[in-house]
Every structure is written in structure tokens, then in C-alpha cells.
Amino acid sequence: MPDARFLVVFDADSTLIRNEVIELIADEAGRGAEVAAATEAAMRGEVDFAESLRSRVAELAGVPLTAFERVLARIEPTPGGRELIDAIHARGGIAAVVSGGFHEILDTVAPSLGVDVWRANRLAHADGALTGVVNGPIVDAAGKAAALREWAEQHGVPMSQTFAIGDGANDLVMMDAAALGIAFNAKPAVRAQADLVVGPVDLAEVIPLLP
């Protein structure tokens, strides 16, 4: 792919999609409420993200891989997301997603929305079911910022032409690394530290900010 004019990196859960995927998977195990509460605490920044993710994924042990079809059917793209990604491409930009969620879902959702490149966590499985463990290094706040820098370098985009859009505390390092950090559908701590806050839950609101 030739060099791009600019790079926009999205968080996935509650940003590019309306859902928190780990909660949908937890519903399949009958543990949705407990995992939802833990996710909320992590997004507010009250607990360490990686530690919280490991404990929440442990609750998913035993969920059959066939459940992913039901989870995918429940995914709701955020209004305006496809329009924003189309506008990014029309202006010569790259649309990327880095998520504390999971490749098992993002590998279907991201290309369906026109995303160019994405990175997320992977869930370990055996005998057709989840084992309750994350495979490999966890994509945490530092990992999100590292992905943004790596993609900018790969695509010849100066850091001055990078955008990061997120909602949770684990997006703040990435948002700080980008030239413009945009809080979208965000928790109070994230709105307070962002360069810009988008109020309506409509990603098309970001289009006028594109170069």
C-alpha cells in the first residue's frame, strides 16, 4: 500500500461498534452481568486493564467457539462509522482499529466496515471451546499507542497527521500519542483529557475534522 496522507485509529468496543464484545461472549456463559461490571471499572480506569482483562476472560472458559456466530449477529456498528471510513479513504487516509477486544470478532467486523488494518487480543481455545486465557501479549494502553506509531511509520504518515478516537481509559495513551485525540461516547476521565470531545453518538461528526 502506498504512503497515506493521514491515519485514523479507532478503538473498537463502544467506539466503532456499539457493543462491548466481551460482555456478549460472557452472556453465552451466563456471566454477562459480572463481566459488564468489571468492564465498566476498567474503562473508567479504576483497575489495571491487563489484569482486569485476564480475570474477565477467565469467566469465558467453556464457551463453545460456535457461540461466536451468535455474538457476531448481535454486533451493532456505530452510526456514521462506515461514512467516516469512506471519507477517510476518499481523502487518501488509512482507517485502523486497535482493540482490547478480540480478533475472533474483529476479523469479521473490521473488513465489513472497510477498515484497512486492525489489531486485537486472541482467545485461547481447545476442543472447540474457550479455555479462559488470552493468547500472547495483551493489547493494553501502551500496546494501542505502539500500534498507532507503528502504522504511521509503515504508511509514511507523519505523527502530525494522526488521529485517535476512543472512549475508555485504556485509549488515553494512544490519544495522547496522536496529533488529535478524540473522545467519543467517552467516560468522564477520557472526555477531560481528550483534545476534542464528540458528543453525539455519530461518527460522521468526525468527518469535518479530516484533512
Score class of each variant (00 low, 15 high):
G45A: 07
E104Q: 15
V134A: 04
G80R: 02
D127C: 07
P79C: 04
H103E: 14
R54A: 13
W118D: 00
G100S: 11
I105P: 00
A50F: 12
D116P: 00
A147Y: 14
D140I: 10
E104P: 01
A90S: 14
V139Q: 02
F49K: 00
A96G: 12
F68G: 07
G143C: 04
S112V: 11
L84T: 03
E59T: 12
A146W: 01
H89A: 11
G93E: 05
D127E: 15
V97T: 09
R56T: 03
D86G: 11
R122A: 08
I105G: 01
E76D: 14
E69L: 12
A61R: 10
T108C: 10
A120W: 00
L148K: 03
T131H: 08
D127Q: 12
A124E: 15
A110Q: 07
H125F: 08
E76Q: 15
G92M: 07
A36H: 03
A90V: 08
V117Y: 06
R56Y: 02
R56G: 01
G114H: 03
A141M: 10
A146E: 14
P77G: 09
A120E: 01
A73G: 10
M43G: 06
R74V: 10
I85F: 03
I85L: 08
A129F: 07
G136M: 02
L130N: 05
W151P: 12
G93K: 09
V57Q: 04
K144G: 03
G81L: 07
G62T: 12
E59K: 15
A141G: 09
K144P: 04
V57R: 06
I75N: 06
V134M: 02
E46F: 09
A90Q: 14
V139I: 09
V98W: 02
L53E: 01
G45D: 10
R119M: 12
G92S: 08
F102V: 00
I94L: 15
L148D: 00
E76S: 14
G101C: 01
R91T: 11
M43F: 04
R44T: 05
T39Y: 04
G114Y: 05
F68N: 07
N135M: 13
H103Y: 14
G101D: 00
E51D: 15
V133G: 06
A96M: 10
V97H: 03
